[in-house]
Amino acid sequence: MPHLVIAKLLTKSAARKPSTRLYPAEKRAPPKGARGRLVMKQIETCVFCGVCGKKCPTRAIAVKRTDKTWELDRLKCIVCGECVEICPKDCLAMEGEHATAFVAKKIETHVQKPKPAASDPT
């Protein structure tokens, strides 16, 4: 019966538990290596070389060497991960979790604290 071709599929799926992921209630762990959002992992080791900003296809990253700040405009970021690969000091990381929605435009700024000059014995 050509009319009942889908019947098998429908009975099967009626017997199965729903395939819906109840998103905000149950969160799925993103797979390893998924590109969710770019984060500044450790600003302390950053040398402000600016390679990440230069390599960024959308110019979402601004690095200011004089102020020791690293800024990310999340509005522009296309989560390609180019900056994470290029960073010589391994400061940046790509997290699997996606970036959440926001209401106000803002630029994420990370400032490196000045290093205590005298306390370093080496």
Binding site: P30, P31, K32, G81, M94
Partner: peptide
């Protein structure tokens, strides 16, 4: 899901 697991992106593989 498989695409995301192997490439890291769902629709834009990158």
């Amino acid at each position: 899901d498989l695409i995301e697991e192997t490439s890291g992106g769902r629709v834009i593989f990158g």
